[in-house]
Design a protein around this nucleic acid. Structure first.
Lengths: 338, 338
DNA sequence: TTGTAAGCGTTATCAC
DNA sequence: GTGATAACGCTTACAA
């Protein structure tokens, strides 16, 4: 069943059928109705591949992310897909892990599938050197690239992200103001947002003319029990800390487990702040104070920006959202400290 | 840059170029090398839409799921995408929520995109009546349908799932044997797997000739604090329970919060068992005993089955995995009860 | 082993 | 408004 069959049954040419298929105005209401009726009756569905060939688009965007089973990335993928779908775009999901080589490979794969755009979900796509980011620029030469939670200044690259630096600085500042002396920052890797968070942490100390030791920032990529171990060792090595900020909730919960094991009072002896405001944070006890970086907003914005770009409207190449601090039982920075 | 350009530059016909593109044997090594060299130099990438039109496939499968930000479904989507990609298939993700109307609508949407198959992720796709499942059968008339964690006996429908009934029965049995008198089952909805879990719960009582009251099974679709509330009310109404089994970890953690609030000892006064063995279960304290339903295995199997189906090999229409019980701090059913 | 030519099912540019 | 007809870029008999 194709456009020819329909045209025959309706007694018109394929051009006219194609016109009603594409909502072209220049078809008399009568023939339009006739054709629609024939289509309906025949259960006709236009061939998407032929359509793609003719229009040079299948209205799909590629969503590239390291690991969509990670709670945070999963939410981002979910929101992006939803927003794109609202705009009649389908999403091809591709999880590429954290290796540069694979990110590159799968970005190219998506392009070879002729997607209309690519969304890079997660700041881990932006590397530390221009050479390593070349693969993004290459792709941006073909289709618009949207980066979620990362920033790269380049043509045809659009970024939607949270002001992680400011939020981390704000919370760190409050912890210092409420009397914490020895804060620790736990971070998984030097991704773009990881860097920003660390900058915010440093900034808070700088703002108060306080000195920061190198071992107050720990880059550690481990699971909950591993974080617990690591902090035990750190403590045994003589590093003291009465507050831990982390770049995600899992790390912070690792610290909570450490406190439990050590018999420390939370937040009395040890204050804890996570990041992402994930469900994990309300599973523990006390529940975790966490920074909410407005992921849903960011995704909605990203989709809006992309649609504008695709229709040729001017858009900002960078949108920055401020984060919220959701205070729960592991801190007392906004309430009065007891 | 298309196949004609390449054929000219290489001094051959487009048919020959197409042959090397498709790995056809009948091309002399010499001309193959020549053509490959020309392609390489020209940076030629075949047009995926034209290819799709000619081959009637773009090697994509649709992944339909209610909500890919749900931790469990997110993992399933992740594993499926990974396995499909290993087999050179791309995944179009579509999140359709829990309404029958939308499930139907988006399944049709995927088919209109000419996917080679559709994976239904989650038992919620299988409804309780044949009429409501008709949309799946219709789709199965066009492409193979794989159901993850659900079962529907039909032509061209293949199911990969866990034996939830047996696992629930086993754990319930152990709880009864270790002296629990009043067990409660918490479940979100009557999905296929939800039904099976409840059946398992009932079976365990039947096996021991024990009677089960209707209020020992609670269908409740709420978040952690809501579960806590609900259990408080239940308790106030005079329903006693010394053990709670849940159809997912979040429900079980809600019960844990209830125990904390009530000052109950876990597992002494109240034993808790979750389902899915998610990360949430290791965030709480004590950590949650949970049933692991071998999701990764199931996804790998689903992909294997699908590949076989697509190549026309015979495969079982149903694969059943047995679940593991991961015992942690909220039960003492496999260790000796203290 | 290679080439010619007829599809695949659309869209879009012309005329009328 | 409508209809021929030429793209779109590839695959694949069928010939040679």
């Amino acid at each position: 069943m194709n456009i020819y069959d329909i045209s025959k049954k309706a007694g018109v040419s394929i051009a006219t059928v194609s016109r009603v298929l594409n909502g072209n105005e220049k078809v008399s209401e009568k023939t339009r109705q006739k054709i629609l009726a024939v289509m309906e009756e025949a259960g006709y569905k236009p061939n998407a591949f032929a359509r793609g060939l003719g229009l040079n688009t299948m209205k799909t965007v590629g969503i590239l992310c390291a690991n969509s089973s990670d709670a945070y990335l999963a939410s981002a993928v979910y929101f992006m897909e939803r927003e794109l779908r609202k705009n009649d775009y389908n999403s091809i999901l591709c999880c590429c892990g954290y290796e540069l080589e694979d990110k590159q490979k799968y970005l190219e794969l998506l392009l070879s599938k002729r997607v209309d755009a690519v969304v890079l979900v997660g700041s881990n796509f932006v590397e530390s050197t221009p050479e390593k980011n070349k693969y993004i620029l290459d792709a941006a030469g073909k289709v618009p690239i949207i980066i979620l939670n990362g920033y790269l200044a380049a043509d045809n690259v659009y970024c939607s992200l949270c002001d992680d630096k400011e939020a981390t600085c704000r919370v760190t500042g409050r912890l210092l103001e409420t009397g914490r002396k020895n804060l620790l920052y736990l971070c998984r890797a030097f991704s773009y947002s990881g860097q920003k968070k660390i900058e915010g942490f440093r900034q808070a100390f700088a703002d108060k003319n306080m000195k920061l030791e190198e071992d107050q920032i720990q880059i550690f990529n481990g699971s909950i029990p591993e974080v617990k171990e690591m902090l035990s060792e750190l403590s045994n090595r003589g590093v003291a800390f009465d507050g831990v900020l982390a770049s995600d909730d899992e790390l912070a919960i690792g610290a909570l487990k450490y406190a439990k094991e050590k018999g420390l009072c939370v937040p009395g002896d040890l204050a804890l702040v996570g990041y992402n405001n994930s469900k994990m944070g309300i599973c523990c006890d006390p529940e975790l104070t966490s920074i909410d970086n407005k992921l849903e907003f960011s995704c909605i914005n990203a989709a809006t920006v992309l649609m504008k770009v695709l229709e040729g409207s001017p858009v900002p190449s960078k949108t920055l959202f401020s984060a919220d601090v959701v205070e729960r039982g592991t801190t007392d920075i906004f309430a009065v400290r007891t």
